[in-house]
């Protein structure tokens, strides 16, 4: 096995709030190889975004902090880097795009300035003309028509899809090795969503970058990802190659999610299947499996000890004591 591009090992992140300490990430371990697309899926509050913010060290401070674990970018532990060294990683080697293209761009600056800024930060030797040329080239590459004109516009003059394209252009300007896409299509309507997903796939083909794709939409996952992490209440509960996950989901939670997807090949007007119960509060997590209170297969053992994440990390891993029995 070749060395992974990015390897996260036993990462734990906590938030100190007025109600107490919330452990938002607990023992997160995964890796991503060059050119690969890794999906992270889960419901709100499961730790998908916190995972990406932890990798980028963008956690809201002073409340959030990484308490243990490593984030290795080609062997270099990002959690131990000085803040100044981290500036050379962000935007340069790992770039990020966000959910809300409406607010992620500064309303008072022109597109040109917001694009150029990244290049100025990471390639200080570039001249103004070079930066301008590179920015226009990048806008063209992300499919923005008349880029010369768009450069002079303000974000409010662009549509949502255009803004997300600009965000992608900003992220890709320095040719990062990894792009973290945190729900990049959630705020867009479906046709634009498909365009943006296709764009990301095309750009990945051209550049060979790795993409960490965070979403709560299994449909989107199915479309773009090579491998998927399923998160629940701050833990990875299942990890698998994309087809494996959709064909043989092992964890009861993943199965619940699959069952909750409305399907075209089933009779219409059925009651949608749901998972009963609530996610446990992060301030008051039960010992053992986090899914125990909603799991129809829960046993005394599940309430006492945390199941390990078992299996081959490149193939299929699951965090459940009973997955072997449930396989059939």
């Amino acid at each position: 096995m070749t060395e992974a591009l990015l390897e996260v090992k036993h990462l734990a992140t906590e938030f100190i709030t007025e109600q107490g300490v919330a452990r938002a990430l607990d023992d997160i371990s995964f890796h991503i190889n060059a050119g690969e697309t890794l999906g992270i899926v889960g419901e709100s509050g499961c730790g998908k975004s916190v995972t990406s913010l932890s990798i980028m060290r963008l956690l809201p401070r002073p409340a959030g902090s990484i308490v243990s674990g490593e984030v290795l970018l080609q062997g270099q532990d990002l959690t131990r880097l000085a803040p100044e060294e981290m500036h050379h990683i962000r935007g340069n080697r790992i770039a990020m795009i966000f959910q809300e293209p409406m607010t992620a761009l500064n309303p008072v600056y022109r597109v040109e300035r917001q694009l150029g800024e990244t290049l100025v930060l990471h390639n200080p030797q570039m001249s103004k003309d070079e930066i301008r040329a590179a920015s226009i080239r990048m806008l063209k590459r992300v499919g923005i028509p008349a880029p010369e004109r768009r450069m002079q516009e303000y974000p409010h003059q662009l549509s949502g899809g255009m803004r997300q394209r600009v965000m992608i252009a900003i992220a890709l300007l320095c040719e990062p090795e990894i792009l973290i896409a945190d729900e990049p299509t959630t705020a867009l309507d479906v046709t634009i969503q498909a365009q943006i997903l296709q764009l990301l796939k095309d750009l990945q083909q051209e550049t060979g970058m790795a993409i960490i794709f965070i979403t709560h939409d299994l449909g989107v996952i199915a479309e773009v990802c090579d491998r998927v992490l399923v998160m629940y209440s701050g833990r990875i509960i299942e990890q698998a190659e994309i087809h494996t996950l959709f064909d043989t989901p092992l964890h009861p939670y993943t199965r619940g999610l699959m069952n909750a997807i409305p399907r075209l090949d089933k009779p219409a007007k059925q009651v949608l299947s749901t998972i009963p119960g609530m996610v446990p509060s992060l301030f008051d997590t039960p010992p053992g499996c986090r899914f125990q209170n909603r799991c129809e297969y829960a046993q005394p053992q599940c309430r006492a000890t945390t199941p390990p994440l078992e299996g081959d990390s490149d193939q299929h891993q699951v965090r459940c004591f009973r997955f072997r029995e449930l396989m059939h």
């Binding site: 966000f98 500064n106 600056y109 800024e117 930060l121």
Partner: peptide, 29 residues
């Protein structure tokens, strides 16, 4: 707390610079 300040930091801009270049300008409105 605005998203575009987070964007600026995600670009690799130091926090102080993100404040003076991005947050301050909007605060003067």
């Amino acid at each position: 707390a605005a998203d575009y300040v987070r964007t600026a930091i995600a670009k690799g801009m130091p926090f102080r610079e993100a404040i003076t270049r991005h947050a301050m300008r909007n605060s003067l409105i």
